[in-house]
Design a binder for these strands. Structure first.
Lengths: 338, 338
DNA sequence: CTGAAAGCGCTTACAG
DNA sequence: CTGAAAGCGCTTACAG
C-alpha cells in the first residue's frame, strides 16, 4: 500500500505538508498543495484510516447494536441510521444481537475495542450490566426503540400508547371483547409498555386482560406460533390477538392457518410494526406503524451531538394505527389504509 | 482509556511481556502470566484494536457490500455471513449500496480505507471499474450472488436454471402459454441469467418470450409495479408474470390489486427468492428458493481462505422451486409447499 | 509556510 | 524468559 511517505517523496515535500493538504489545513502554499494533490492523484493514494484513528483518537464510526436484523422493522431502522450517519460524515458498523444478550454484549465489546465514536443500542432481552458500565465509562451512547431503566442515556423511541388506544377502540367498535396479546420479553421496555398500554386501553372499556390472554413471546416468529396455539386451545379463546411485533404476527398467522382456521372469521389479528407485506397478506393486517425513518435519523443526530460535544436530545415520536381487514370489516367512519 | 502501559505498570513487567501474555506467546513465565492476567482483570483492560491493526497490518474484519439491505434475501445473506465470519474469528462491516453503483463504490473505498482484510461483494447494476482495480490491487475479494464478468475472483452463487425449468413446466402443466418476466437490471448477472434461463425453458415448450413480455425492472418494488401496469395494459396481457426478485413481486402484487384484479384468477405470479411471508400472501406465492445460509457460509469460507493464503473455491448451489397457489391450483402430482 | 520530531497503542525481532 | 527499542502510518505542537 502506498503511504503518506510515498506521496511526500513524489511531491518533494515532507509528510507534514502532505498531511496538511489532506486535512485542508490553511497554511500550505498553493504550489505545495498543487504538487501534493498531483502526487496523490498519480499514486492513487488513500490515507490509512487505521493510522489516522490511532493518532486522532476518533474513528468517525458509530456502532449500532440491534436486537434482530431479520426483523424488517430493525432492518429499516438500520438503513436509515446508516443514511443519516453517512450524511454527517460517519460510517456505521452494525452488530446483530439476535435477541441474545451475550451476543449483544459480544458486539458491544468488539465495537468498543474498535474505538467507535459512539454507540446506538436497542437492548435485547435480559439485563446487561455492560450497558451501564459503557455509559459510565464515557462512551457516547443513545438508546433507540428500546431502552434500559437505570441507564442514563438519551432515548429515541416511538410511543405506541395512543395508537394502541385507537386499536382497542377499533376492536371494541367491531364488537370484540375477548382481546389477547402476544407480549415481547418482559425485560425489554417495548415488551412491557405495549402490554401496559393495551391493558390500560382495555380498562377504558371496562374490559379485563386476564393472565391467560397474555402470551409470553420473545419477538420471534416461533414464539408467536406457540402462544397462539395455546390461545386456540383455551376453553374460551380470544376473539382477537394483538402481536407486539411483526414476526410474532407471522407466527400467529402460521398457527391459525395450521389449525385450519381463518382470519378474521375465526380469530382477529393485529400487529405492532407495519411492513409492506401486510397489505398483501390474507387478509391485509391491521397494524401500528412506527415512524422508522424519523426514529433512525433522530437517534443518529442525538448520538452525533454527544460525540461532538453538544447536548443530545431524547425524542419520543407517536406511532399510528393503520386499519386493514384482519380484525373484521372496519366500521365505515374509520379511514381504511389498504 | 487504560492502555497496555497501565497494565505493565500494575503487573510490574514490561509492555512486551503484557503483549506476549495477551497473544498467548509461549515464552512467558507462569508467574508473569498470572500477574499480567490479574492486572488486566483489575483494570478491565481491553486491547486497542486500532493500534493492533496498525501494527499487524490486519484488522480481522471483512467487508460486505450488498446491493440492498431492505431486500429480505440480502438481509438473510448478511446475517449468515456475519455468523460464519464470527465463527472464524472475523467481524464484518456491511455496506448497503441501495442498488446504486456510486454508493457501492463509496462503501468499497471506505472499507478499503479501514483496511478490511477481505471484501465480499454482490455488485450493483452499472459497471464499476473499481472492482477490477481492487481485485488487481491484491485485496482478497469474493463475489456472492452476483458477479462481474472480467473480474477474476471466486464466485459463490445459486444456479436457478433448473428451478426455472421446473417453474415453466409447472406453468405449462397449468395451461399457461403467455408468460412474462420482470427482469433485473441487465448489467447484473442475476438480472441476465434469470431472463436467459426463462427464455430457454420456454423454448423447450416451443414458447416464445416476445420483447413486450420482458419488463425491465431494477430489483426494487416500484419497478415491479410499473412493469406490471404496462403488462396489464397490453392488448394481450400475459397469463403469468415471473418476477426476478421478491421486491418486484411485491410491486407486481400492488399493481394487480390496484387494477382491481386478482391473483391467480386474472394473472398468475411467481417470484425468484422465497421469503416467509409468501406463505401468507393472498394467494400464497410460488417461488424459487435459494440456499441462502449455505451461500453466505461458502462465501465467507472462500474469502477467509484467500485472506489466510489458502486457495479459495468458487461454489454454485442449486435453487429450488416451491409451488404454492399463485399461478393456479397445482396439478396433483406436484408436491405443494404451503 | 515548512519540516523534524514526538507520539497514538500496540507487536516483535534482537540481545541478553 | 524478559525488556529496550523500532516501527506500523498518521497528525500536530514546536521552532524556524
Amino acid at each position: 500500500m502506498t503511504s503518506i511517505k510515498d506521496v511526500a517523496a513524489q511531491a518533494g515535500v515532507s509528510v507534514a505538508t502532505v498531511s496538511r493538504v489532506l486535512n485542508s489545513h490553511p497554511s500550505v502554499s498553493p504550489d505545495a498543495r498543487t504538487r501534493v494533490l498531483a502526487a496523490v492523484d498519480a499514486l492513487g493514494y488513500r490515507p490509512n484510516a487505521v493510522a489516522r484513528s490511532l493518532r486522532t483518537d476518533q474513528t468517525r464510526t458509530l456502532g449500532l447494536v440491534i436486537s434482530d436484523v431479520l426483523n424488517p422493522y430493525f432492518t429499516e431502522l438500520a438503513r436509515f441510521v446508516e443514511e443519516e450517519a453517512r450524511a454527517l460524515g460517519y460510517s456505521v458498523i452494525i452488530g446483530n444481537a439476535d435477541e441474545r444478550p451475550e451476543l449483544q454484549d459480544h458486539h458491544v465489546r468488539t465495537l468498543l475495542d474498535r474505538r467507535i465514536d459512539g454507540l446506538l443500542v436497542s437492548p435485547a432481552d435480559g439485563d446487561s450490566p455492560l450497558m451501564a458500565e459503557v455509559s459510565r465509562g464515557g462512551t457516547p451512547m443513545v438508546f433507540v426503540d428500546r431502552w434500559m431503566p437505570g441507564v442514563d442515556v438519551p432515548v429515541v423511541r416511538a410511543d405506541g400508547r395512543h395508537a394502541i388506544r385507537d386499536l382497542v377502540a377499533h376492536l371494541h367498535a367491531l364488537g370484540h371483547r375477548r382481546l389477547a396479546i402476544i407480549a415481547g420479553p418482559a425485560a425489554t421496555t417495548t415488551g412491557n409498555e405495549r402490554v401496559e398500554a393495551f391493558r390500560e386501553a382495555l380498562r377504558a372499556y371496562e374490559l379485563d386482560l386476564p393472565e391467560v390472554y397474555i402470551g409470553q413471546g420473545d419477538f420471534q416468529a416461533d414464539s408467536g406460533r406457540r402462544v397462539t396455539e395455546r390461545f386456540l386451545a383455551l376453553p374460551e379463546p380470544p376473539e382477537v390477538v394483538f402481536a407486539a411485533d411483526n414476526l410474532m404476527a407471522l407466527g400467529a398467522l402460521d398457527a391459525i392457518r395450521a389449525a385450519g382456521l381463518r382470519v378474521p372469521r375465526d380469530m382477529g389479528l393485529a400487529a405492532f410494526d407495519d411492513i409492506p407485506w401486510f397489505v398483501h397478506t390474507d387478509p391485509p393486517i391491521t397494524a401500528i406503524a412506527q415512524p422508522t425513518g424519523e426514529l433512525g435519523r433522530a437517534a443518529v443526530r442525538a448520538l452525533v451531538d454527544m460525540v461532538e460535544g453538544r447536548s443530545p436530545q431524547s425524542v419520543t415520536l407517536p406511532a399510528r394505527l393503520v386499519v386493514r381487514r384482519s380484525c373484521g370489516e372496519p366500521a365505515s367512519d374509520q379511514r381504511s389504509n389498504l
